[in-house]
Simulated scan of single mutants.
Amino acid sequence: MQKTFYKLMVAASERHASDIYIWPDSDGFQVIYYSAIGIEKVHHFNTKIGEALIRHIKFSAHMDISEVRRPQLGRWHYLIGQQSLHLRVSSVADFLNRESIVIRLIYDMQDNILDWQPKNQLNELANLLKLKQGLILLAGQMGSGKTTTLYHVATNHLDNQMVLTIEDPVELVAPEFLQLQVNNAAHMGYEQLLKLALRHHPDIMIIGEIRDAETAHIVVQAALSGHLILSTVHAMSSKGIWYRLRAFGVPIDLLNQVVVGLGYQEMMTRDNQSYVNLKMASGKQLNELLVDLKNAETHAMAPQASS
């Protein structure tokens, strides 16, 4: 099983897959890679081998191999030659008590370089870091590399500054950053870690995701206090970021004060090569966008004249 799993890991690493799925089907287990180009079914094992492989993974990730019914989480530091990977393992059984495994591959930052196009948009994002304060927000589909983009600009365009990250979970390993991970079991959610992070007085904070109203308000207040904050939001466009934060109850005037950049990116393919299509709005373009959004919202809320 060690050799079998090693071969799966080597192939996944070569594809730069973000996840490996081992799922039961009608006559065994299928192995699926998820990468920038999408889902790829790569192997099929009979039931005996599939179950043995899952036991090997669970044992190596310090999970209970005798427990099948309840979901479990595990971790594993894995080496492929000189390449270091951090594996996050999740197991769950279906209604027939057949286990499935999902393995998230967490690469070192230097092993996770994407191709951003057009290049001037990435440079525009990097230039925003010179502002030293404010809120930069990035949206995009799951798996489009939002966190990698934020890590890349912070790693390559910040010198001698303290960068603190808060994620759920940590997706990239960057030893030069102070990386904190959400742990709800220990009552350390985004809100608690954000409050703790402010006491460390970092120059820049990278927040994995703004996913609720309380986090949104704390992030905005932190940006108002003079911090530069980079974060991601689930939205379908740059405009969607605004509506998402407004839905969280963040006042218009505060958004106009703190937001210094909005971006949207998606993973694209050309000639079987993947790249990140990044579009940023900052400076004059951002100001015009914010004015348009504010006017549109004010008009929508205005009472309609009766006929």
Rank of each mutant, 00 (worst) to 15 (best):
S91F: 06
S100P: 03
S90H: 02
D108M: 06
L128S: 12
E99T: 04
I49W: 04
L79T: 07
G145P: 06
T155H: 12
A52T: 04
H56D: 06
D115R: 01
Y107H: 11
L131P: 03
T147S: 15
R69Y: 14
L87S: 07
G38T: 01
F95P: 02
L122P: 03
L150W: 09
L138P: 12
N123D: 14
K119T: 06
Q110E: 15
Y151G: 09
L114T: 07
A52R: 12
E51C: 05
Q110W: 00
S144W: 03
S60Q: 13
D94E: 11
R55S: 04
T149F: 03
H56I: 05
D115W: 02
P118C: 01
P71H: 01
L158H: 10
P71W: 00
M63H: 10
L135E: 06
L105M: 10
M162A: 14
V42D: 01
V92P: 04
L73A: 08
K119M: 05
I37L: 14
H62K: 12
Q141P: 13
R98C: 06
A61V: 13
V102R: 00
Q133I: 09
I39T: 14
L122S: 03
D111Q: 08
D94F: 09
L87C: 12
K58C: 13
Q161K: 15
H157A: 02
M162E: 13
K130T: 05
H56C: 09
L164F: 10
H77I: 15
M63K: 04
N160G: 13
I106L: 12
T148Y: 02
L122A: 04
V92H: 02
N127K: 11
G38A: 06
I103E: 00
Q133R: 13
V92L: 14
G38K: 00
K119Y: 01
G81M: 11
W116T: 11
M142F: 07
I49C: 08
I136W: 09
F45S: 09
L85V: 08
L150I: 04
L79E: 08
D115K: 01
F59L: 12
I54Q: 12
D159V: 13
G145K: 01
G38E: 03
E67C: 10
S66G: 15
Q141H: 11
L158G: 13
D115F: 00
N97V: 05
A139M: 06
N46D: 15
D64C: 13
G81I: 09
L125F: 07
D94T: 08
Y151E: 02
T165R: 02
E124Q: 10
L114I: 05
P71R: 05
H43L: 15
F95G: 06
N112D: 07
Q121H: 03
P71M: 14
I136K: 13
H152E: 13
A139G: 11
K58I: 02
K132C: 13
M162I: 15
H62S: 14
H152Y: 07
H43M: 15
Y151V: 15
N112F: 09
N127V: 05
G134R: 08
L125Y: 01
I49P: 06
I106F: 09
A93F: 01
Q110S: 10
L128A: 08
M162G: 10
I101A: 00
Q110K: 03
